[in-house]
Nucleic acid binder design. Structure first.
Lengths: 140, 140
DNA sequence: ATAAAAGTTCAAGTCGACTTGAAGTCAAGC
DNA sequence: GCTTGACTTCAAGTCGACTTGAACTTTTAT
């Protein structure tokens, strides 16, 4: 397949496909002149990448998970990521239920509704976000 | 509370708190000299913002959902966002199950495992990502 | 054989969400 | 009353994930 065809069936712009190839996320198996040639199964891989992006993984995480060096699959990493998703599903669920309730709740604002607060606090099991610079700061 | 205290209990750097205030996501109720004064319930609001960020909402979405103009709450928006989360939960769940399986699967790579592919294709109900420029392009 | 369409590289630009730096202002303890 | 440290503003920088533009090459359709 040429890049335009992959773009069409994947829904991703050609620029993104080039960018992904540069990052090692996909591969073309050769060239026709200058033009990249892709095998059809790149489409499946792109679907996986897109799904990964949608669930909040960075390109780097996706690379680590799905581009093993040699025949070695990092099973521990996969389990870890699965657990992270599990935690996130809890948060999403709490937020969803909170929103659904807020949509019908008559409280003047969300913070005066105990039900809303309780739903959200479920996600609060694993509380507030950590600053990016946590590690660096802690060294001092 | 002064900004350092809010930073401490929220786990967010002061720079982020200033940034959020500038964006209208939080408010200080006044100043002591130059210094901002925050009411304690800003902490609760910050927890909601952090949760929102964690579930993938942009600051703008969070603003729209939780900073009503006047007493009007946009209930339809909240329902819509709840449904988006529902869809996302489906994706997260599929990815989680795919990863959990891949972690123990003996197939040489994930794309040769029918179970992995089937799990992911569940999320494929709502398929590939759309290019940013979809609308613009379609006008022509 | 030639011109348009489609592809290529590489550098620079964009966008959201912050962070960092410089330069200045306060308030609190000594 | 003065230093020091916590705060302030505002501009600029950063990072990830792409996108865009310019200059160029190759098909491909006429």
């Amino acid at each position: 397949m040429d890049i335009a065809e992959v773009a069409k069936v994947s829904g991703l712009p050609a620029s993104t496909l080039r960018f992904y190839e540069e990052k090692g996320l996909i591969k073309s198996y050769g060239r026709n002149g200058l033009r990249r040639l892709f095998s059809p199964n790149v489409v499946e891989r792109l679907a996986l990448i897109s799904l990964g992006r949608n669930v909040g993984f960075s390109l780097e995480e996706i690379y680590e998970m799905f581009t093993p060096d040699g025949p070695v699959i990092n099973r521990e990493l996969l389990s870890t990521k699965a657990s992270e998703l599990d935690k996130k599903i809890t948060e999403l669920t709490a937020m969803r239920d909170g929103l659904r309730h807020a949509a019908v709740c008559q409280a003047p604002n969300h913070f005066e509704c105990p039900k809303f607060l309780r739903l959200l606090s479920i996600a609060g099991k694993n509380r507030l976000r950590q600053p990016n610079s946590l590690k660096a700061k802690n060294l001092k």
